[in-house]
Design a protein around this nucleic acid. Sequence first.
DNA 1: TGTCTATGTTGACGCTCATCAATACAGGTG
DNA 2: CACCTGTATTGATGAGCGTCAACATAGACA
Lengths: 123, 123
Amino acid sequence: MSNAKVLPLLEADGQGVAPCCPPLTERPMTAEEAETAARMFKALGDPVRLRLFSAVASHEGGEACVCDISDVGVSQPTVSHHLKKLREAGLLTSERRGTWVYYRVEPSVLAAMGKLLTMPAAA
Amino acid sequence: MSNAKVLPLLEADGQGVAPCCPPLTERPMTAEEAETAARMFKALGDPVRLRLFSAVASHEGGEACVCDISDVGVSQPTVSHHLKKLREAGLLTSERRGTWVYYRVEPSVLAAMGKLLTMPAAA
DNA sequence: TGTCTATGTTGACGCTCATCAATACAGGTG
DNA sequence: CACCTGTATTGATGAGCGTCAACATAGACA
């Protein structure tokens, strides 16, 4: 249940975090940048994971118990597997509270991915 | 070399296009929405494709010849394969002009993906 | 016509991934 | 303690993917 930064997609800089890479449109990504960013996109590149992530992100309070979101048409072990992937990608964190485990989104990572897809100001 | 909308990730609505899905944080995605959006993220979920896409997106004029961007450490057939994937995902379009083939980004799709990652106004 | 360059396609190989059943673990309740 | 519920892990299986060498195709030019 560790929330350790298994894959540090963002780097801490004092308070808060900085995006891993510049916008895709700014300059060609380096191999290292691409490796890092691709992990994030890959994590969202599965329909089941996307639904799980969206369910957590849109849940009231910004967090959801597994039992709240596990109705996505796959078995319970598969749900657990995908949640782990999302956690390892740095998109979700988890916390056990009594009987249930709660997942919540990592907002800074979401913002960083959004910046990656930013278009130049004057298109 | 067809640019036909193999995977219509956006739907035309008069002039311009509308995003396929609401922001991930607005409400849980349906299975269909997730299927559609996951294709886009999956296409960017490979480091080589991400570098190719970034190279095209950041190239002057918003387009690039394959010869301009194919130096990403894999063989020429592999580059061609990945460019095809990006084209099929609706992220790039291609056009042959004489000897060379030029790729350019589909800006509306990029914008749609950005909106997907939008955070609620008051976090 | 033939030849050269640029790009796409085919077929095969190895690896990764999504999925499930079975099992294990954690915490609550009796 | 035993038992139940919620969640994670293990191990296996089949499908999909990234990669390359070999070949095919398209256009330019002589």
